[in-house]
Amino acid sequence: MNNDILLSVKNLSVSLPTPRGTLRAVRGIDFHIRRGELLCLVGESGCGKSMTSLALMDLLPGRAQRAADHILFDGVDLQRLNKAGMRALRGEKMAMIFQEPMTSLNPSFTLGNQLCEMLFAHRNTSAREARDRAIYLLERLGVPMAAARLDQYPHQLSGGLRQRVMIAMAMMCEPDLIIADEPTTALDVTIQAQILRLIRELQREFGTAVAFITHDLGVVARIADRVAVMYAGEIVETAPVNELFARPLHPYTRGLLACIPTRGGARDGRRLHAITGVVPDLTGQPVGCAFLNRCPQAGPACGQPPPYVAAGVGHAVRCVRALPQPMEAL
């Protein structure tokens, strides 16, 4: 394994039994994250982004089944770790920022209890050291009166401050990888911009790799180093962020980019662009390209499973209409 690659995922699948059959929420995806890199997983709701993050953290629902050729984190295959091994890894080496902080923070404990618990669980540290670390991170994240906040409860903070606490909690042990699952969705645009800037600044300051999950390509353009576009449980395109915006190849990626509103773009009365149709039902075994019924360029060849093809340095796409060059292992 390349020493520069922190996380390498090969052929990851997640399935859930339902009354209508097996739901294949994630279908054989491959990706990697380099040390200190910010990778954005982007796509519509229901495309498998959050299930991918939960599979990495081994936090899937009880009936879900995870399978992969490997999930290598810093050279260790996470599939081989038992529950105790994963508990030791979570928080210490891998941490997660969830979408809604009010349901992620425990309303019965003070913020200080919850922040310091991370260090007590993973490090041999004193209460004073843990408290000082929590105050430092809260101040670094722009939380006013940081020391006093440690004695408060989650309901006493605004949504933006609660999300800052969640970021501080994830950073308590300086993990190598943070998974951020749409952490700004519930915030207004002003607070969202502040949170995004803070995540990017902390990522650069501590050299932490970040897997940032979002459906907002505006967010992607601001913070990403590299982008993986997901659709119907598959990764359909991967590219450096500038390359993706300059030369999107998959029809779904182009459709997402066309949906971004531009200043003054609708003054002539035209409606904003929208991708017609909905994400297909993922129960049973899909046939052909999952985007077939929504793709304006679909043809007879799209009835077969599309290949994953190389389209340049670091750029790959899953589409029969892309460059016909077989994709080598990433």
Rank of each mutant, 00 (worst) to 15 (best):
L6C: 03
S8H: 09
K10C: 04
N11W: 02
N11V: 02
S15T: 14
P17L: 06
G21F: 04
T22V: 13
I29H: 08
G43F: 08
K49Q: 12
M51A: 13
S53G: 15
S53C: 15
S53R: 13
D58M: 10
P61E: 09
R66K: 15
D74M: 06
M94K: 08
A95L: 08
M96H: 12
Q99W: 12
E100Q: 13
N106R: 01
N106T: 00
N106M: 00
P107S: 08
G112E: 01
G112K: 01
G112A: 02
C116I: 00
L119R: 00
A121C: 00
H122T: 10
N124L: 05
S126C: 01
R133S: 03
L138M: 07
L138V: 04
R140M: 13
L141G: 12
V143K: 04
M145W: 00
A148N: 06
P154T: 07
L157Y: 03
S158Q: 04
S158L: 05
G159P: 05
G160N: 03
L161I: 10
Q163L: 03
Q163G: 06
M166T: 11
A168I: 04
A170L: 01
M172K: 01
E174M: 07
L177Q: 10
I178N: 02
T184I: 11
D188M: 05
T190W: 06
Q194Y: 00
I199E: 05
R204A: 14
R204M: 12
R204P: 01
F206V: 13
A209R: 07
I213S: 13
D216K: 07
V220H: 07
A221F: 05
I223E: 10
R226N: 10
V227I: 14
A228W: 09
A228V: 11
M230A: 12
Y231N: 13
T238W: 03
P240D: 09
P240I: 10
N242D: 14
N242E: 14
F245D: 11
P251F: 11
P251Q: 12
T253D: 11
T253Y: 06
C259R: 08
C259S: 15
I260V: 14
T262S: 14
A266R: 14
G269P: 05
A274W: 06
V278H: 09
V279L: 12
P280S: 13
D281Y: 08
L282N: 12
Q285L: 03
V287Q: 14
A290E: 06
N293M: 01
C295H: 10
A301I: 14
G303L: 12
P306N: 10
V309G: 05
V313P: 00
G314M: 06
H315Y: 08
V317P: 13
V320G: 06
A322F: 07
P326L: 07
L330D: 08
